[in-house]
Design a protein around this nucleic acid. Structure first.
Lengths: 122, 122
DNA sequence: ATCGAATGTGCGCGATACGCGACCAACCGA
DNA sequence: TCGGTTGGTCGCGTATCGCGCACATTCGAT
């Protein structure tokens, strides 16, 4: 059960085994063992896993079926203004699992502003 | 942390070590080791513990403070993968206060992908 | 098509530590 | 006083955890 959940969460983030293991500070083979079911993570390790994947230990163990992220936000949709840097301070925007730099975001904002200006003239 | 929580839960129910161990199907010394901090329960054992005490594994591990099944991940920086539509369903992205359409976001994603491809060749 | 790097997968070994039985001190009611 | 219960620790056998290493597979670049 835990192995399936880990693989699903990691692939959703488009992370490799090596990258995930590095984030956790463990060997690649160790984390791979978790996903293959060959090993079970220790109590300390599973706390780190839940933290890294932003979910609950209960979800990893299959006790509950909802990941905590969805559980908290499914009722209230949040506003996220992309030009507000302090709002984005605690959000890491990614595309294909890779971080979005501030420069890239600024380029996008400029692009959208120009696009809207042109559309407004019609 | 887990030892304190276990002792607290057991005493609240006025159970003895022996009775608790019997309910779990393990040796008294084993469960006593959990409470004294001398041993850590295995993954399988901690699931049984949470079930017996009608609480969550996250509570036993000290990840959350309330024994109910509410889970939270505030103050932590969240990942927001822009290509995951179901994640974005709960977030309204805006630029200059104006909603960002799905088309505009798709254009941006395509733009970033091309940009990264070019940069990777250098 | 071919090479090489990156990624996924599995195994053996050393070391950790889990679970159990045995044991001990403290407490308490008969 | 004493038998019984409770909380707690220790030694031992062994299950298994984490790591290094090797092999299989995928994938992009030439």
């Amino acid at each position: 059960m835990i192995s399936k959940r880990l693989a699903e969460l990691r692939k959703r983030k488009k992370w490799s085994l090596q990258y995930t293991a590095d984030r956790l500070g463990i060997a690649k083979s160790t984390y791979a063992g978790y996903e293959s079911g060959y090993r079970q993570p220790s109590l300390e390790a599973i706390k780190e896993l839940a933290s890294l994947f932003e979910t609950s230990v209960d979800y990893l163990l299959g006790i509950v079926d909802n990941s905590s992220f969805k559980l908290e936000h499914e009722d209230k949709t949040k506003d996220l203004e992309l030009t507000e840097k302090d709002l984005l301070a605690n959000v890491r925007l990614t595309i294909d699992g890779k971080n979005l730099s501030q420069d890239e975001l600024n380029q996008f904002i400029a692009f959208i502003r120009v696009k809207r200006e042109i559309e407004a003239k019609r």
